[in-house]
């Protein structure tokens, strides 16, 4: 669409800007202020300069949490993206089955995040949970409070359960926008299933997939409530991710300065990643427009 250049559009933006600025800019400024001081209360505070930043960047537990975070995000992306595409391909397209399957697939997305944790906590407990009990009956000494492997496996399984629907629904909507004529043409050419996927379906999916990967990366990067309820970050600190380290430091220990410095580092990482994705999305749309003409 060719847009009109008109700066009066700012008046339409303004109400939104005031609200978002209130909940984004003022707090962010405060975080920056905290990060250079040792704050006891509003009147008792000392300027520390960059000390907290140096301390946080060299803190081994935080470095470990960061690495763990990346490992977790990459793992769930590697599982959820292909699985989501696969599910979108086999979801029924018409009739009452389509509606039922759609609602059932959406279900995990609508459950509050801590309830997701509770569901899996109940489901995987050795004494009262179906999965925990089942695995033990099969002879596997499953225990998420003792074994790091079990805890990781369960958290990843939980995340796959919780968020694969997002990718699946995105892809499903991408697939539905392919005109039937394309498939007919492919049938006439006797195209194999694989080449239909590779040359008709996948190109249509790239756009929604980038959005999906962006959302999934970001949400997995701020995961908090689910592992907090399920494992409490344990055993040890093997499933303590960034948000939980930060929350423990900020709320639990009331260390305003260090946690603010940590917040800013966290925020810079997020900023870089979302900028890369955003630029990718925008460039793709531009190319699409140029092709479309």
């Amino acid at each position: 669409m060719n847009k009109v250049y008109d700066n009066k559009a700012w008046w339409l933006i303004l109400p939104m800007l005031v609200l978002v600025a209130f909940s984004a800019i003022i707090p962010l400024m405060t975080v920056v202020n905290y990060s250079v001081q040792d704050v006891f209360d509003a009147n008792t505070r000392f300027f520390t300069g960059t000390e907290w930043f140096a301390q946080m960047l060299n803190d081994p537990t935080l470095q470990a949490a960061l690495l763990r975070q990346f490992a977790f995000s990459m793992t769930v992306l590697a599982i959820e993206v292909p699985l989501g595409i696969g599910i979108a391909l086999i979801m029924p397209k018409k009739g009452w089955q389509a509606s039922v399957v759609l609602i059932l697939v959406t279900l995990p997305l609508l459950i509050p995040w801590n309830v997701v944790g509770s569901i899996w906590q109940i489901f995987t407990r050795g004494d009262i949970g179906l999965m925990g009990w089942g695995l033990r009956e099969l002879g596997y000494g499953y225990n998420i409070t003792r074994s790091t492997v079990d805890a990781w496996g369960t958290i990843i399984l939980m995340d796959v359960w919780h968020w694969t629907p997002l990718i699946a629904l995105l892809c499903y909507s991408g697939l539905r926008s392919i005109p039937e004529a394309y498939y007919q043409a492919a049938r006439i050419d006797r195209a194999s299933k694989w080449s239909v996927f590779r040359y008709i379906q996948l190109p249509k999916l790239t756009n929604v997939l980038v959005i999906g990967v962006l959302l999934r990366f970001m949400h997995s990067f701020m995961i908090y409530a689910e592992p907090f309820v399920l494992t409490g970050g344990g055993p040890g600190s093997s499933t303590t991710f960034l948000s939980q380290s930060l929350t423990t430091m900020a709320i639990g220990q009331q260390d305003l300065g260090p946690s603010a410095a940590f917040s800013l580092i966290y925020f810079l990482i997020i900023l870089l990643v979302s900028w890369v994705f955003y630029t990718a999305i925008m460039n793709m749309q531009k190319e699409k427009q140029e092709e479309g003409i």
Binding site: V20, S23, A24, I26, P27, L28, T30, V31, Y34, L214, M218, F221, M222, Y224, L242, S243, L246, T247, A250, I251, L256, S259, A260, S263, Y266, F267, I270, L271, V273, S274, W275, Y278
Partner: peptide
């Protein structure tokens, strides 16, 4: 883009000032 970064920002970052 700035709006999107707010969508992506971890709530934990804003917890204290909020």
């Amino acid at each position: 883009f700035w709006l999107l970064t707010n969508l992506m920002a971890p709530p934990a970052v804003f917890l204290l000032p909020y």
